[in-house]
C-alpha cells in the first residue's frame, strides 16, 4: 500500500468531516491503526479543523460547564449507564423497620388499653373510698353530736325496762330539757316483725296521757339504733310500743315493749 498516495487522495480529510460511508470509515480506522503515519496525518487534519472551528467562535465564550451539569445529573437518573442488580438492602431495611414499627405500635396500643382499664378500676376504688369516708364522716358527726348531748349536764338518762310482751327488752332515752330533744337508744329492742315499727310515746301519769314523739323505723342490728327526736312535753315517762308501719294515733298498750319514768 502506497501510504503517501493514500494520504494525498484526500480521504482522511473526508474521514474527519464525517462524510464517508460506514465501510470507508472502518477501512480508514484499520489503516490508521496499522500505519502511524496515517494516524498522525488524521490528527493533524483534526488539529486544523479544531483551529478553524475555535477561531469561528470569535469573541463568544462557551457556556460554563456548570450550566450543563444540572441537566447532565438529571439525565443520569433517567438513563442509567450500567444497569445494576444490587440486593435492595434499602428496601429490606425499610420493610423491616415498617414491620417493627407496626408491632411496636400494636404493643403500645395494648399497653395503653391495659392502663386505661387500670385507671377505670382505680377511679371506681377512689369513688368507693370517698363514699366510705363521707359515710364515716357523717357517722362521726352523728356520734359526736350524741356524745356531746350525753355529756351535757342537763341531759337526763331514762332507763326503759322490758314489759310483759318482751321482758328481756330494754331501751334508753337521753332527754335534754334545754334543747327539748331526746335521743332514743334502741339497742335492747328485738328486731320488729315485717309490717311493724316501734313508736315512742311521752307520757304524763295523772291522768295517763300519751303523746307520740315519733316512729322509730328500721330498728335492728343492721339498721338504726339511735334516733334523735324533738320533745316539748313535760314528760313523766317514756314508752315504746310496736305499731303497724307508719305508727298509730294512740299507743297499743298490749304491745308495750319498754317503759320507764323520768323521775329518779
Amino acid at each position: 500500500m502506497d501510504i503517501e498516495k493514500y494520504i494525498a487522495s484526500g480521504i482522511l480529510e473526508l474521514y474527519v468531516a464525517g462524510s464517508l460511508s460506514e465501510s470507508e470509515n472502518l477501512e480508514v480506522l484499520h489503516n490508521a491503526q496499522q500505519y502511524p503515519r496515517i494516524q498522525e496525518e488524521i490528527e493533524k487534519i483534526e488539529q486544523a479543523l479544531l483551529q478553524l472551528t475555535e477561531a469561528s467562535s470569535g469573541s463568544l465564550k462557551k457556556p460554563a460547564f456548570e450550566t450543563i451539569i444540572p441537566n447532565v445529573q438529571e439525565s443520569e437518573k433517567v438513563i442509567p449507564l450500567k444497569p445494576e442488580h444490587k440486593t435492595p438492602w434499602g428496601t429490606y431495611v425499610g420493610w423491616a423497620a415498617a414491620l417493627f414499627f407496626g408491632v411496636g405500635l400494636f404493643w403500645f396500643y395494648n399497653q395503653n388499653q391495659d392502663l386505661e382499664n387500670t385507671i377505670q378500676v382505680t377511679k371506681q376504688n377512689i369513688k368507693i373510698l370517698n363514699d366510705t369516708v363521707s359515710a364515716l364522716e357523717t357517722a362521726v358527726t352523728d356520734t359526736q353530736k350524741v356524745l356531746q348531748m350525753l355529756r351535757d349536764q342537763n341531759t337526763k338518762v331514762v332507763d326503759l325496762g322490758g314489759q310483759t310482751v318482751a321482758p328481756e327488752a330494754y331501751a334508753k332515752v337521753y332527754w335534754n330539757q334545754d334543747t327539748q330533744k331526746v335521743i332514743v337508744d334502741t339497742q335492747g329492742l328485738p328486731e320488729p316483725p315485717d309490717g311493724y315499727d316501734y313508736q315512742i310515746w311521752s307520757l304524763t301519769l295523772e291522768p295517763l296521757t300519751p303523746t307520740s314523739l315519733g316512729v322509730l323505723s328500721d330498728v335492728g342490728q343492721d339498721g338504726e339504733q339511735l334516733f334523735e327526736l324533738p320533745n316539748t312535753n313535760a314528760s313523766e315517762a317514756f314508752g315504746i310500743t310496736l305499731e303497724p308501719d307508719g305508727g298509730s294515733e294512740t299507743p297499743t298498750l298490749e304491745q308495750l315493749y319498754t317503759l320507764g319514768t323520768t323521775a329518779p
Partner: peptide
C-alpha cells in the same frame, strides 16, 4: 444550542464508537 448539544452528548455517550470515526467528528455531527 451549545449547551443542548453537550447535554445530548452526555445522554448519548454510549452510542459513540471508534469504528464510526473520530470523537471530534461525532461531536461535530
Amino acid at each position: 444550542i451549545c449547551q443542548d448539544v453537550f447535554v445530548k452528548v452526555w445522554k448519548n455517550a454510549s452510542q459513540y464508537n471508534a469504528s464510526k470515526g473520530r470523537f471530534f467528528t461525532w461531536l461535530l455531527n
